[in-house]
Write a protein that binds this DNA or RNA. Structure first.
Length: 519
RNA sequence: GGCGCCGUACCCAAGUGGCUAAGGGAGCAGUCUGCAAAACUGCGAUGCGGCGGUUCGAACCCGCCCGGCGCCUCCA
């Protein structure tokens, strides 16, 4: 029985979708005016995992994630770069999709853009005007907050409190300082669409209301985004949507916590952010393969593991040490997969079979129990580790092929929810150079934000280890070494091992005199 | 000023009223090994920021305090 923490109620609730076995969910995507940072990655990953788990649990999911492609920040960026808003939006939209692909975050079922739904937005604004929730000020349309008594329900704010703390420049013409723009008249050179109120463009919040209701219905199951969207964005969405339809809008509100650097929120305005592509650039250099896509996959799994070892609602402090630990933990899984794959024994005793069945069942239960409890990914990962320990404890030599395959399948099946264990065993790289990361991009920021220059100066001084891609060559060396060991020529054997080690290859001897190796 | 969150071992991190406080990383010791590596075993918080209180019983509930953070303004 799945329970989800609902921001609306402030507590965990049993999840019951409107229609049995079907979930309609919407997550706020990004405003495409710059490259996305790790915070965006976390949010995207959280909802990717939620979608995956809902499907894993047997729900048919329709997932919508929007792009805000018309906005003040885009306009500003466009004028800075001497380009059109559309060009800026297009560029960063494609960059986002590329970043998501590298991260292994699957596209949403529908990824609507605000600019493609202008008629829907206008229609919604018309309804709000007609129902007395919005008013016109020259070419602008404002939502009148006090016409919606439930305003503040999501963010748990009283309208009086909001006023008291208002530090915003207030447009004096507004009926109330809290009223927000549904439609803005456009100045020359700004993107503009014809409307009953003249040429203009939508305000920030209205597009999510228009697109979510159009694509998912007036009432749908789950709506999410980062914590910072609770107010004002989602509060305003609720006000607009409910006022227009008179119906419930989204039923479960899910918000993820921030990524932080040195205990501070990672954000554009603080300047303490890493873009997703910076992380990939930096980490991809660790891997020995020349195949860029394989490198991406290795980095992506380490990053996903790292992000998922913290519960989605908690803040998460980013560090290279954390990523490194994630990689080490994954090594343990892949090492087990490797051994299971390489084992050549075909027989097994039935009690081992029974035991394997039992521990796989325990994984399933532990995993689902954790995920059903508000998507507790750290606890679910712990369940995976417990299975790893159990299997490692069983005599490796006694597992039949069938049992080994069943085990790996169980890992991969559950790992799919998180996007883990998807890499071919032979492509996983175990021994990566450490200790050189501090040479390049800073691993932690000083505490004075003004000095930060995180996006520049990425210099990697230590070159990657030389490549030995010829597996036959490696195997020849390994064979030669085992021949030497047979002769008790340990000096020669150790020489060969050292030589291979210099290429980042580790030898592990088996009891029968043969050896396996890994990068 | 208003609203809210967090503080669990060397590091990361679950747990939020009741078995021995998950799991990972790092470390140390042992088994195995020609030596290693991997794997396994053991060690590691009589205690969960501090002080009080409620309770038969609290990391978990309440109060106060200390430390850190977020939202109220664009923000995942």
């Amino acid at each position: 029985m799945l329970k989800i923490y609902n921001t609306l109620s402030g507590q965990k609730e049993v999840f019951k979708p409107l229609k049995p076995k079907r979930v309609r969910m919407y997550a706020c995507g990004v405003t495409v005016y710059d490259y996305s940072h790790l915070g965006h990655a976390r949010s995207a990953l959280v909802f990717d995992v939620i979608r995956n788990y809902l499907q894993f649990s047997g729900y048919a999911v329709k997932y919508v994630r929007n792009f805000t492609d018309v906005d003040d920040k885009i306009i500003k960026r466009a004028s800075e770069e001497g380009k059109t808003s559309a060009e800026i939006a297009e560029k960063y939209l494609l960059a986002y999709q590329e970043d998501m692909k590298r991260l292994g975050v699957a596209p949403a079922d529908v990824e609507p853009k605000a600019t493609e739904h202008i008629p829907d937005i206008i229609r919604l604004i018309k309804t709000l005007i007609k129902k007395g929730h919005a008013y016109r000020l020259n070419g602008d349309i404002y939502y009148e907050v006090k016409t919606y008594p439930a305003y503040g329900r999501l963010s748990k704010r009283k309208t009086e409190d909001l006023l008291a703390g208002a530090r915003v420049e207030v447009d004096e013409r507004k009926r109330d300082p809290m009223d927000f723009a549904l439609w803005k008249s456009s100045k020359a050179g700004e993107p503009a669409w014809d409307s009953p109120w003249g040429r203009g463009r939508p305000g920030w919040h209205i597009e999510c209301s228009a697109m979510s209701m159009k694509l998912l219905g007036k009432t749908f199951d789950l709506h999410g985004g980062g914590m910072d969207l609770i107010f004002p964005h989602h509060e305003n969405e609720i006000a607009q949507s409910c006022a227009a339809t008179g119906k419930e809008f989204a039923r479960y509100w899910v918000h993820n916590g921030f990524v932080q650097i040195n205990q501070e929120k990672m954000s554009k305005s603080l300047g303490n952010f890493f873009t997703i592509r910076e992380i990939f650039e930096k980490w991809n250099r660790k891997w020995r393969t020349n195949d860029e896509r394989k490198r991406d996959r290795l980095t992506a799994e380490a990053l996903r593991y790292f992000l998922l070892t913290t519960h989605y609602r908690s803040p998460l402090d980013f560090s290279d040490v954390g990523l490194q630990e994630a990689k080490s933990a994954l090594d343990g899984f892949y090492d087990l997969f490797k051994r299971l794959r390489e084992s050549s024994v075909e027989t097994t005793t039935s009690d081992v079979d029974v035991r394997v069945k039992q521990v796989i069942e325990e994984l399933k239960n532990g995993f689902c129990q954790a995920m059903d409890d508000d998507f507790n990914t750290p606890a679910a990962i712990a369940a995976l580790h417990r299975l790893r320990g159990e299997i490692n404890r069983l005599p490796e030599s006694g597992l039949s092929r069938q049992v080994r395959e069943r085990t790996v399948k169980a890992f991969r099946k559950h790992g799919t929810v998180f996007g883990l264990f998807q890499i071919r065993v032979k492509d996983w790289e175990f021994n990566v150079p450490t200790g050189w990361m501090g040479q390049g991009m800073q691993t932690s920021f000083p505490s004075q934000p003004k000095e930060w220059r995180p996006t520049s100066g990425v210099t990697i001084t230590e070159p990657p280890l030389p490549l030995i891609d010829e597996e036959k060559e490696i195997q020849r060396k390994v064979d030669e070494r085992n021949e030497a060991r047979r002769r008790k020529d340990f000096k020669r054997a150790d020489e060969i091992r050292a030589e291979l080690a210099s290429f980042g290859i580790t030898i592990e001897d088996r009891p029968d005199g043969t050896s396996r190796w890994k990068r």
